[in-house]
Design a protein around this nucleic acid. Structure first.
Lengths: 172, 172
DNA sequence: AATGCATTTCATTTTTTCTTGAAATGAATG
DNA sequence: CATTCATTTCAAGAAAAAATGAAATGCATT
């Protein structure tokens, strides 16, 4: 009785439960990718692919993670754009299969290039504009404010000097 | 007519419009603090305080940013907990006044300490668990998977080695 | 070129996160 | 010690972000 119930369950779910190992990997990547602003489903997909010894088709991914068609498609697209997932051709198979690119540094470098750097550049533009406004302030306020803007610039400069260094460290 | 309308407007809004300079600073901090997961209102508050030559009371902040009591209170509390804002005592004044701590590195170091480091530590625990599971896999899969876990560990190690270095750079 | 599958797109729904404001708490003043 | 003003808390509402799934598109096969 108990056995047959268990078998039924496995039938019903097509043996699709995630293994303990997969769960660990998935949770890990959900957490890390959340850090750079990626949604849960993207972390799930990458985590599953990361520990999968062979390429997975989109519908397999959907079933095993229990996510929708749309989420799977969009998530894979995003990951491919980041360079974190690649589509591989399996001979004789009609549908695409996907593998994780194991170069984890990609997440960090993409984040730096697309999020951090642009913000810093826009920050420097803002600082320029702020400095242009400065002369319209009262002399007392001007002095205080100028010093603060200077400090902002100092931090942005420091940040910009750090980035190449971090990039180099990541890529090596 | 036009003049009196303008004056009316200024009366109505109690001369509370943000200056161009304040807007620049506020937008800048909204953008940067969003990066570390802080809500807009927190960026607004910090930005306003950052360019304010003198301490501001909570109700001033509310009025000038046009945010609610709750948002102002919670935002200030959060910023104080981060160490990014300090309450200063103004003699004769009943209510607290707030100033920005200009040490911008605090945002980065808090982020590293409270977000990055804990995740990395939990990541290493997960890796240990994954390695314990490894022997239950088929020999073929085991080899592939072991290599990937090894790679994960490599990246976490690299990250953990980087952090103290980054911290040192930020603090100096 | 028609059919059948695989993938993408996108309007809608769901979930999560942020903000609001009224009530509770606290703290200074008369 | 009662009153008034300042701040915190938190349930409810609003806004933003993510997920869903049906319809559209694309593409290989017959």
């Amino acid at each position: 009785m108990i056995d047959s119930a268990t078998i039924e369950e496995q039938r019903a779910s097509k043996n699709n439960e995630l293994s303990e190992l997969e769960v660990e990997a998935i949770e890990m990547f959900i957490n890390f990718l959340k850090l750079i602003g990626l949604p849960k489903s993207v972390g799930e997909i990458y985590g599953l692919l990361f520990v999968s010894p062979r390429p997975l088709a989109m519908d397999t991914i959907m079933e095993r993670l229990d996510i929708s068609l749309g989420a799977a498609s969009q998530g894979l697209k995003l990951l491919r754009n980041l360079g974190a997932v690649k589509a591989v051709y399996s001979p004789g198979e009609r549908r695409d299969h996907f593998v994780a690119d194991l170069e984890l540094s990609k997440f960090a470098t993409v984040f730096i290039k697309e999020e951090l750097k642009p913000r810093m550049e826009r920050g420097l533009e803002r600082i320029k504009r702020m400095e242009e406004i400065l002369p319209t302030l009262s002399p007392a306020d001007r002095k205080v404010t100028a010093a603060r803007i200077e400090r902002l610039r100092h931090w942005l400069d420091k940040g910009q000097k750090m980035l190449p260094w971090i990039m180099k460290f990541l890529l090596r």
